[in-house]
Design a protein around this nucleic acid. Structure first.
Lengths: 200, 200
DNA sequence: TAAATAGTTGAGCGATCGTTCAACTAATGG
DNA sequence: CCATTAGTTGAACGATCGCTCAACTATTTA
């Protein structure tokens, strides 16, 4: 085995992820990453091949964290449809304030790099569609349990939820008053409620 | 007056705007701009001060074109609310295909540069809120003409329309099948229809 | 404990970045 | 028609970019 690595790979990735999240990929220099991770260029390149390799793994970490976040929300909801509603309502906190101004790392990176960088584009589409599938699954569950009107398509609704969330992430970038953010989200949730089975 | 400029300032800006739109600000080099505008660095810097100056004016041009586009749609609609509906439905064409993958220059730039670059952030917020005001004005008109339920706030609805549009621009980046794009837009328009005065 | 292996260090590489400017060119004004 | 003014040119500047690698260090194996 010889000499072992002195750093925790996940800690390093978390630090790199934060820098990419706050500054974007292009605006983040290798010296920035060196400062954030406390690793010298050689170690960084030894562990991740190159700058894009660091981004790739940081995106996977971010996607995993997001997936875990969604699962937590769905798990803590009384009804299936209520879980999706809760997810949207939680976007108030996600999008408000200083953290809201950093937006979503996946959306930021998609807009910065696609369609120029096909590799990153493909990776992001994979992560995003995984997220969409999780929401679609939840909506299918809602439908199975009779919470959703029978003429609604969970897959389309999941796409709508994703699209709404993306829009909210952009809205968060404009540093809006929390009241406005909440009002827009309520408008979106109203739409979702309109898809519920009449009488519920 | 001495020697006159040999180039058409608007043509040059249009060319620069296209490059920024397709590649993003950071990924666009000055040689890229030189190639696209057919101006030498000296002329470019003489006319626009620096790279960011070019972006600034390109953003203004883009915002003006967008404003003109919205006005055209609103002017060609029978009813006020129908204009907003038409605007959303038109996003199918805006977001689909190759051009859809370039997204919205304003959203792209906002996500790339804010909150790091406060100057660009402020400029974009100005352009975007001008657009939002135009939509709010149209929705107020709809309300005045009794097309909108009396408990609806045109300003909030305008924010909702903007947010939906941003989400759709991100969706366009993922290169979705046109049918999916249309289905999501229909879901959004359904929401807007739910705000119409009952019985219309 | 010596040889082998793997990780760390940071100076420095070539390439490219945004920008400048001296030389040149074309118009205007006296 | 020459001096003045303004625009164009493109080579070249210093800064910074992403990245490499020889020297060094720590750990394992024989």
């Amino acid at each position: 085995m010889a000499r072992p690595q002195e750093f925790d790979r996940n800690e390093v990735l978390k630090a790199a992820m934060d820098v990419f999240h706050q500054q974007g990929y292009g605006a983040t220099s290798v010296p920035d990453l060196v400062a954030a991770t406390h690793l010298q260029p050689g170690s960084l390149y030894g562990a991740f091949k190159n700058k894009k390799g660091i981004l790739t793994e940081a995106l996977c970490l971010y996607a995993d964290e997001t997936a875990a976040y969604i699962n937590r929300i769905f798990a803590s909801s009384d009804t299936a449809l209520g879980g999706v509603r809760k997810f949207l309502l939680q976007q108030t906190d996600v999008c408000k304030g200083e953290s809201g101004r950093y937006g979503c790392l996946m959306v930021n990176t998609l807009l910065e790099m696609a369609p120029q960088d096909e590799e990153i584009e493909e990776l992001l589409n994979k992560h995003l569609s995984r997220m969409e599938s999780r929401i679609a699954k939840q909506l299918q569950l809602a439908k199975d349990q009779g919470e959703l009107a029978t003429d609604k398509d969970p897959k389309i609704l999941a796409k709508f939820v994703m699209t709404s969330m993306w829009g909210l992430r952009v809205l968060g970038k404009t540093n809006p008053p929390v009241a406005e953010l909440r009002a827009v989200i309520e408008q979106i949730v109203t739409n979702l409620n309109g898809c519920a089975k009449p009488g519920d």
